[in-house]
Design a protein around this nucleic acid. Sequence first.
DNA 1: GGATGTCACACTGTCAGACAACGTTATATG
DNA 2: CATATAACGTTGTCTGACAGTGTGACATCC
Lengths: 253, 253
Amino acid sequence: MPSPPTSELPVLRKVIRSSTIDLIADQIRNAIYSGSLAPGQSINEVRTAELLVVSRPSLREALQRLVSEGVMTHAPGRGVWVKRMTSDDIDDVYAVREAIEAQAVKIVIRAGKPIARIHQALAKLELAVEGNTARAIGDADLDFHHSIVACSGSVRLSDLMKVSMVHTRLLSLSDPRGYEVRCDLIETHRELNEAIADGNEARSLAVVGRVMAGAAARLHNPLTEPGAVIVRADDQDKLVDDQWSQLRDTMKA
Amino acid sequence: MPSPPTSELPVLRKVIRSSTIDLIADQIRNAIYSGSLAPGQSINEVRTAELLVVSRPSLREALQRLVSEGVMTHAPGRGVWVKRMTSDDIDDVYAVREAIEAQAVKIVIRAGKPIARIHQALAKLELAVEGNTARAIGDADLDFHHSIVACSGSVRLSDLMKVSMVHTRLLSLSDPRGYEVRCDLIETHRELNEAIADGNEARSLAVVGRVMAGAAARLHNPLTEPGAVIVRADDQDKLVDDQWSQLRDTMKA
DNA sequence: GGATGTCACACTGTCAGACAACGTTATATG
DNA sequence: CATATAACGTTGTCTGACAGTGTGACATCC
């Protein structure tokens, strides 16, 4: 639908055709993020290609993108599979996330960037926590963190954050104990939101550090933590997006 | 040659065969880093493939890696070319670098990691500055920064640093005024080295911030800065590595 | 029985060739 | 001179092919 008429001439925005490879990579990345493609799951090139209705070369090009994002692993002769995270990866991923988010917070505060988007993300997170569905909470959590980085206005930080989100998700999904989320995360997030709104850099950075350390600790040692309300994702958390579940079945064979 | 006998049994290290795509990507990345492939230079797939003696599909797969690293740009129908940085990219790249290096510094200091490698890198930098060759100084500069991140022990931070190094180099090479380096950078680097050795986190972070801000400012406005000793890279700075210069000629045609 | 060897199958790695769609440049046309 | 047209070079994508490699089942051997 056309936007309402204004006094200005309609602004023509640059047309961006995304390449097929982008689209393929997005599909697979989404499938991973949503859990349809589990860590360790290997990609059968022929079957996957015909499932996506692209040729094998196109698929392979897309897979290379994901490999360099660190979302998939490649070994010559054995092909490509969804990266399976180990405990070694936990601190590493969160070190990167702290780097990104701390820097984003600094930029947002020092440059006085608008932060409406962060508030919105927090609101959605609060809503998700009500819903009590692990996956939804996880999504909203990561979206909240991404909103901070997005507000910084740095495209590179934002891009890095996007892949770090997938990495984070892979950490959870690689955990043999299953995907789980702590409900009390909402308090820290409120605090972070508040600290940013106050322009309190030191406090914001401290909270970021605390959030990261907490998340890493929880993954290292999830159940011994006292007083943590835990929402565990069970099978009722539906992951059925389109053909991908069927793809997973096909690939099991 | 077999290593000298020790009291221990010889340790068998995992064999890592790097894939062809890795090798191709490395070649091109190096060519860019060394300046043989200039920003804006487009890649002719057929010619480049036969120069590297690989097939077009293999080359294309490797190019996708570089695209997702942000080192090359892709537009459907127009192929792939070396990313040309603009002034908008300057702050963005340095924001990422500050994020990475600040985090690395924190880890190094807090975990008390060994920092011999940083000292070595500093020594090499001092040597390079003597030599007064812009490219050598630039290399040593970036190596010094990378050494810090390497000491952190985080593979992800280190990987990110590697691509940020190429980005940084691309910033310089994209500058129409030509590649140049300030000689007085050595003092700040000594200071950083010292602050890290002292385990002084606050000071280290401050220096990192200052270095980044300074570098960005210099790129924004290189010649108006007073009192700066400048080494300008001229044609005597040889960039001739193997076939790549010839490749560049071929691609001009 | 556990380790080792053998074989067949499935898949990846890599390539050549092909062709349509697209971009770009040179040329013609009004 | 601006605009259409034609010609050429390149990319995007696909098919088909085949050798090299990984994998699992099965046979064998101490």
